[in-house]
Simulated scan of single mutants.
Amino acid sequence: MSEVAGSGLWQKSLWESVLDSYSKPTVEQLSLAWQDQYGANVTLMLWCVWLQRENICLSKDVLQDVVATIKEVEDATLWPLRRARAALYDLSVITRVQQQLVKKQVLAAELSIEKILVHKLQDVTQKYIEVMRDVEAPLQLEDYLQSLAMPNAAMCAQEYLALAE
């Protein structure tokens, strides 16, 4: 693998990979659909895509810890912001322009938190590479989708990976 500033472990940072993949309309639509239908975490799905693209071979045992870490941060920050943004549409005491202004600011805060989570995932990945490496059966998107009890997880993972390219 070629060296990248500060990592030497991957060709593209997780943040760059997330932006590339999520910018594809089909990836965004499918991500949000799976989030609504199965409780999938978009950031974790895109992290798994990145792991596979970069041939980062982590043990499947890291998944539970990573999910718990991300969930803790999201429960304390992202979900309250998303609920507040959704509640804006029910407020009749502020104008549509005011709603849009606040919505834009809340979305910016959400993006900042998501970026922090992505950088945390990359840092955790670097730490786990040293102690939780598994070249034989590495963690993949399919494993994450199976942990959500998603039907046809293998097929769904293949579809998602192809769309994210």
Rank of each mutant, 00 (worst) to 15 (best):
N55T: 06
T26D: 13
S7H: 10
E114Q: 14
G8C: 05
L46K: 04
Y89G: 14
L161T: 03
E114R: 11
E110M: 01
T125R: 06
D75K: 13
A108Y: 04
K115D: 10
D36Q: 14
A84V: 11
T69I: 07
L139D: 00
W47M: 00
L30E: 11
L9N: 11
V4C: 09
A5R: 08
D20I: 08
T95R: 05
D36R: 13
K115Y: 07
I56A: 03
D134M: 05
E72C: 05
E16C: 07
A68G: 02
K71L: 06
L139W: 04
E142P: 04
L139C: 00
V27Y: 09
Y89I: 00
I129V: 12
S23M: 00
D65G: 11
V62W: 05
A164L: 03
Q64A: 12
Q100C: 01
E28V: 03
D123N: 12
D134V: 01
V118K: 03
D123M: 11
C156K: 13
L141H: 06
K120M: 13
K12H: 13
L44E: 12
L46A: 05
N152T: 10
A162F: 10
Y22G: 09
R133C: 08
L145S: 04
E74G: 03
A154R: 06
K127L: 14
P80V: 03
D65E: 11
T69S: 08
E54D: 02
W47N: 05
V102P: 00
V18H: 05
D143Q: 02
K71R: 14
I94V: 14
S112H: 14
T26A: 15
Q35E: 11
K104H: 08
D123G: 11
V73D: 06
A157R: 04
L161K: 04
L44R: 10
Q158H: 12
V97T: 09
D123V: 09
A86Q: 12
A149S: 11
W34I: 10
G39P: 11
M132S: 15
A149Q: 14
I56P: 02
R133Q: 10
Q105Y: 02
L46C: 07
Q37E: 12
H119R: 15
K115M: 10
L117D: 06
T26C: 11
L145F: 07
V73P: 01
W50V: 07
D65I: 07
M132A: 15
L107K: 15
T125Y: 04
I116M: 13
K127Y: 13
P80E: 02
Q11K: 13
W47I: 01
W50S: 07
D61S: 15
Y128G: 00
Q140Y: 01
S147Q: 02
S23V: 00
N152G: 06
L9K: 14
W50M: 09
A153R: 01
V66F: 04
T125H: 04
D123H: 13
W50T: 09
A86V: 04
A108Q: 12
W47P: 01
V67K: 15
V118G: 03
C48N: 11
D36C: 06
M45A: 12
L163A: 09
W50R: 08
K24L: 13
Q122F: 05
R53T: 02
Q100F: 02
Q126T: 10
A33I: 06
A87V: 03
Q98Y: 00
I56E: 03
